[in-house]
Design a binder for these strands. Sequence first.
RNA 1: AGGACUAUAGCUCAGUUGGUUAGAGCACCACCUUGACAUGGUGGGGGUCGGCAGUUCGAAUCUGCCUAGUCCUACCA
Length: 951
Amino acid sequence: MDKTYQPSDIEQSWYKTWEEKGYFRPSGEGSPYSIMIPPPNVTGSLHMGHAFQDSIMDALTRYHRMKGNNTLWQVGTDHAGIATQMVVERKLAAEENKTRHDLGRENILEKIWEWKEHSGGTITRQLRRLGASVDWDHERFTMDDGFYKAVQEVFVRLHKDDLIYRGKRLVNWDPKLHTAISDLEVENKDKQGHLWHFKYPLADGAKTADGKDHIVVATTRPETMLGDTAVAVHPDDERYTDLLGKSVLLPIVNRLIPIVADTYVDKEFGTGCVKITPAHDFNDYEVGKRHASALINIFSKDATVLAEAEVLNIDGTPSDAFDKVLPESYVGLDRFDARKQIVSEFESLDLLEKIDDHALKVPYGDRSGVVIEPLLTDQWFVRAGPLAKPAIEAVENGDIQFVPKQYENMYFSWMRDIQDWCISRQLWWGHRIPAWYDEQGNVYVDRTEEEVRANNNLDASVALSQDEDVLDTWFSSALWTFGTLGWPEATERLKTFHPTDVLVTGFDIIFFWVARMIMMTTHFMKDEDGKAQVPFKTVYVTGLIRDENGDKMSKSKGNVLDPLDMIDGIDLESLVEKRTGNMMQPQLAQKIEKRTRKAFAEGIQAHGTDALRFTLYSLASTGRDINWDMKRLEGYRNFCNKIWNAARYVLMNTEEHDCARDHDNYELSLADKWIISRLQQTEASIEKSISEFRLDHATHTLYDFIWNEYCDWYLELSKPVLNPSNDNKAQQTGTRRTLVRVLEAVLRIAHPFMPYITEEIWQRIAPLADKSGDTIMTQAYPVADENKVDQKALGDIEWLKGVIISLRNIRGEMDISPAKTIPALLKNGNDEDLRRFNENASYIQSLAKLESLTWMNAEDEAPMSATQLVGQMEILVPMAGLINVEAEVTRLEKEIAKAQGEIKRLDGKLGNAKFVSNAPADVVEKEQEKLASAQQSVSKLNEQLNKIKTM
RNA sequence: AGGACUAUAGCUCAGUUGGUUAGAGCACCACCUUGACAUGGUGGGGGUCGGCAGUUCGAAUCUGCCUAGUCCUACCA
C-alpha cells in the first residue's frame, strides 16, 4: 500500500466492480428494506443538499444490506415540468432566437426529450461518484411509460370519485410562463410600496355623513380599479350606513358600481372603504361571490390591459351586468404602466387624495420571478379535503413518524387547513391531462381516446380533442413510492417493497411532496385487509446545507458548492468559471468572482468521496441546518489517511506471519482483551445511534474508537508485544490475531459510511482475519457480543493510561525531551495498583519511555521528585538532573489549586443538609468519595510541595 | 399576525430521563521528523452554556419573560 491515502486511485474502480457484479440489486433474501430516492430534476445536477441526503440513504441502505435485509434503494429522476421546459426554451432563444410557439408542441417536446437524454447522465454520474448503491437495473423516470400509465389511472379514478374537478376559478397566474401555478409555488416577498387614496364620486347627488360628495378608497394596486365592481364597507360602520345601496361613479371608466356591506372590511384600516375587484384579488373574489355581482376581467394572459373587458357571472358564464368598454388609452398597456397612468389621471382629475408609504407582501412565481397575477381561468383541481383526512390520521396514529418530531406540527397545520390543489399547467412538458372535448365543449375523462369513445358511444364522426394542459409535476411525483414499483400492475416488487421504510428529504418539500405522497398512497394503496397503506414508515427530515456564513446556497449568490469538487478538487480559475458562467443575471458575475477568489484562494483540494460522506454524517444532527465548513472536511480526509496508515501498520505486522487463522494456539494480552471489549461497546453504541437516525453520533463514536483508542493506544500497546525481544510467541500470535480481526470488524462497521476505503483495505485484511468473500458490501454487519467485554481489562487499561498520561504530563510540563528515557517510581499504591504494576510494568516503560519503573513500599524514603497522582497512588519522577524546581512548584500549585477548588465546591454541596437529605443516596455517596479523594490529593501534593520548597 | 426552530470555546458542532471539573474536530501555544501515519505524535491554554427571573438540594438541560437570528403559514385593501 502507498504511504499516503489517495482516494482517486481506488474509488472509481470499486464502484464499477460493485455495479458490474450486481451487488446493488435486492438480494431476494431476508426481510425487505426499501428506500425511494427523492427524484432529482433530470436535467439538473446534484448539489450539496442532494449529496447529504443521498449519503444518508446510502449509509442506511448499505447498513441494512449488511444486516441481511432484502434491500432496495430505488433510483430515478423527475421530469420537473416548468424547470426543464424553461431551460430548453431559454436555450432555444439563445441559440436560434425562437420561441416555443415558433416550433410548435411536437417539435419542442422532441427537443426536450433530446435534452433530457443529453443531460440526464449528469445526475447518474454524480450518484455513482458518491458511491450510491442504488438499483440501477430499475431506474425510473416520472415520464416513462409505466409512470404514464400510473398517472392516467390515478387521474381517471380520482375524477370518477369526484376528487378531481374542472372549473373556472381565480388562480395564481404566471404572466411570464403563461401558466397557472399552485399556492405553494408562490413566494410572498416583503416590498415597500404605496397606498394610494382615491376619491370615488358618489352618484345621484348622495352625500357622506360629513357632507362630502365622494368616498375615499385606498389601494396598493391602482390599475385594478378598471375592474372594480363594487365598494365595500363594514355593515356596522356608522359613517357609511346611509350610503348602503347607493352607488359611486367609477372615475375614468364611468361605471356605476354599488356600495355594499361586508364584514371582510376592517373599519379601522384606511378609510374603511374598500374597492372590490373580484377578478383580480382573492379576497375580493370571495366578497364578490357573496354579493353576487359580476366579475370584470381586464387583463390578458400577459397581464396587459385587454381591448375589451370580460364580464362574467361568478360561475364563469358571460354576463352583461356591466359595459365591456375599457378606456382606449389603456388598451395593451402592461399592468405596471397602467398603474402609473391611472395614478396620474386621478391626480389630474383632482381625485388623488394622498399617497402613503406602505409595506406589503407581493406574490412572485418561484420559477419565473415575476409578480403573480390572480386571473380567472379554467383549471383542473384536486379536492384535497377528503384525501387529507386519512393522510392526517396516518401521522396521528403513528403509522408514519417524522424525525425530528416537530415537523409533524408543520404537517398537521397545513393539512388541516388544506386548499384544493390546482393541478393543470399550461405547459407542454409533462403528463397531458387525459380529458377530451367534443365540439360542444362536453368533457370526457378516461385513460385513452378509445376508452372515451367506447364508454360514451362516440363514433368516429364525433371530433374529439385532448385537453392541451399538462399536470403539475408534483402530481406524478406524488405517486413515486408505488409508481416506481410497477403500480397499477400488482407486481412482485410492489408487494415486496411497499410500504417503504424511510423517506429522507428536506423540510422544504414536506408540503409539495411528502404530504401529497401520503394523500395519494393512503387513497390508492390498501393492504390485504383493505387498510390504507402508508408510503413510508419514517420521514427523516434533514436540515439545509448552507455556506460558511450561514447563507443559503444559490446560483445567483455564487456560493454553490458542487459535491464533486469536494471529492476531486478544482483549481481556482475553473471554480470561478463554473460559478460565473451561464448565469441568468450576468451583472452579478463580478461580485461572485471576487467572493470566490477570496474564499478559495487556493482552489479546492481533492478530499475523496469517503471524506465528504463522513463529514456529512458527522454534521447530520437533527432539526438544525448545517453551515458548511471546509475545515471539517479536511479533518475527515485526515481521518481516512489515519485509517489507511493504521492498516499499513497492521499489514506490515501480520502479512507473512501467523495470525492464528486455523488454530487456537495463541494468548490474548491485556491490550487485546481491552480493545476487543471496547470494540463490542463501540458496536453496541453505533447500532443504537443508527436506529435513532443519529448518524452524527454513530460516526463520532467510530472516529473516536479508531483514532483515539485503536490507533493511539492499541497500536502503541501492540508494539512492545510484537517486539522481537518478547519471547512469548503465543502472545505475539494473539496480538497479531487481534490486530487484524479488530481492524476487519472496524472496516465492516465503517463501510456504510466510507464505502471505498473500507473495501480497498478489507480486500487485503480479510484473508488474514479468516474471512472470505468478494466484497465487504455483503459481509455481515458486526454485532456486539456482551460476553467479550472484559471489565478487568477495561479497568486495567484505564489505570495504565492514567499512569502513562501522568508521566507524559510531567515530561511535557518539565520540558524533558521526548527522546530522553527517565526513571520513575510508584508509591503509596494499594494492592490493586501493585497487581497492575506487576502485570503491566513493561507496557508503561515502553509507552512512557522509561529507563526504569520501581515500586516503592510506603516506608521507603523517596528521592526529590516531580509528582502526579493516579487515584491515590503517587507517580514520581526523580528530579536529579531533570526537573526544573520552579516549574515543578508552579505545576504542583496549579494542581493543588484545582483540587482545592473541587473541595470547596463539594464542601458546600455536602454541607447543605437539604442536598444530603433530598438527593439520591448514590449521588451523595459519589460526592463524598470525590471529596475524600480530593482531600487526600491535596495533602499528598502539599507534602511534595513542602519537600521541594525545603530542599 | 400565528407557529416552529436556533443561540454552548476564536470557528463548525455534540451534550440522553436535571446529578463527575460541560465535550469533539478545526484553529491557537510549546516540544518532537521516534520504523504505520507531519494528512502525524505528546503536552497545554481557551467557555458566566444569549440575558433576566423562577421551580429544585442541584439547571446548559425544566417553566416564564426578554434579546438576536432563521424558517414556515396566513394576511388589511
